[in-house]
Amino acid sequence: MCMQHDRHPIFCLIPPYLLDQIARNGNKEQREAALRTRAKDATFRSLRMTAQPSRNPPLLAATALAGKRRSIYTADGSETLPGKLVRGEGQPVSGDPAVDEAYDGLGATFDFFAEVFDRNSIDDAGLALDATVHFGKAYNNAFWNSAQMVFGDGDGQVFNRFTVALDVIGHELAHGVTEDEAKLMYFNQSGALNESMSDVFGSMIKQYAKQQTAEDADWLIGEGLFTKKINGVALRSMKAPGTAFDDKLLGKDPQPGHMKDFVHTFDDNGGVHINSGIPNHAFYQVATRIGGHAWEKAGRIWYDALRDPRVRPNTGFLRFARITSDIAGRLYGTGKGAHQAVKEGWAAVGIDV
């Protein structure tokens, strides 16, 4: 995410510590791209902090519309949103990879939530899905601003275009689901849980599109985002947090996978992109222990937990873990396979429910 916690956060994909690493260690062109991205993110933060709630009109279920409604715009290298409409719902491929990847990614995300959780778009009220591609010059990020998706093209040296990974699109749109259901504060453990929910949904969206089992999935977030010049396979690994990259420019993946390695920091909104590795790994442990498709039982437990009224804005790992355990017992039987898998999965990351 780009910013500190406030009423209207901007959810960015690339953690600020990665941009800082590039600004410190990169060549002139890489540093300039990283600094431009950081400056834009700071501007978005300021704009959102001064935004009034009335600018976000209430979404009423009574006016909900069924079916996908996608609109893909291009900023053509400018910083104007939404930009020029390039492809609308049902229109043929444009021939622009970024446009068509965004269109397909938004559709795959809509289909996942509709078919798996019977959810009508991000807000469960038929919200139209809009996205802008080719935003800015060498913009090294993608974000959800509570109204639409925005994708940069990357700098071509560190990052490829940000539409290339389906789980990235799913991750960002899933912030809208969390925002709608739980309003988790974007700071410390609740913020890391917020990030983890997006990784969980993003990974499941990719797995659902490929019809992969939990055992067959790679559990990587952002595979393909790094260029071949970077020694890394993805931004994060839910299967093995801390192993996604180890590069002289970016440093080593800092994510922990266990509470004993929890990172106490004020950077990155209290380590929201770092400590998310812990609940990420817990979900991986639960899904692989249950077996089959992750979205069938493990995903249902996490989704129901996100919507549970016991989840408060400041909910941390332990409270959320206890809620998932309670829901697993209620859905699949106390002490039975799925319930036991949830308890063991959280225990594997140092959280006893």
Rank of each mutant, 00 (worst) to 15 (best):
F317T: 07
N231T: 12
G335W: 08
I290A: 02
N314M: 13
V233C: 01
D261G: 00
F162S: 02
V150Y: 08
L173A: 03
T265Q: 09
R7I: 08
I351V: 12
F187D: 05
K84F: 07
G77Y: 07
G291C: 05
L59N: 10
R24L: 12
A64T: 04
G95E: 10
Y73H: 09
N27D: 15
F283D: 01
Q148G: 05
N231H: 13
F226A: 02
V349N: 07
T132P: 07
D111E: 15
G95H: 07
Q285R: 10
L60W: 12
G152Y: 05
F317L: 15
W144E: 03
Y103N: 07
P92V: 04
H339S: 15
E179N: 13
D100W: 09
R161L: 05
D167M: 01
G156W: 09
P15M: 10
G83P: 03
G152L: 09
G154I: 10
I221T: 06
F151E: 04
H281F: 02
H134G: 03
I10P: 01
G242K: 08
K260R: 10
L249M: 12
G291S: 04
L220V: 06
F159E: 05
N160L: 02
D216K: 12
R69A: 14
L331Q: 11
K183V: 01
G95T: 12
W219L: 03
V177T: 13
R307A: 15
H273I: 02
G350V: 07
G329M: 12
A34F: 13
A294G: 12
V93D: 14
G242H: 06
E101A: 11
Q207I: 01
T74K: 15
H293A: 00
G156D: 06
T74S: 14
Q157S: 14
G126K: 12
G251D: 13
M204H: 11
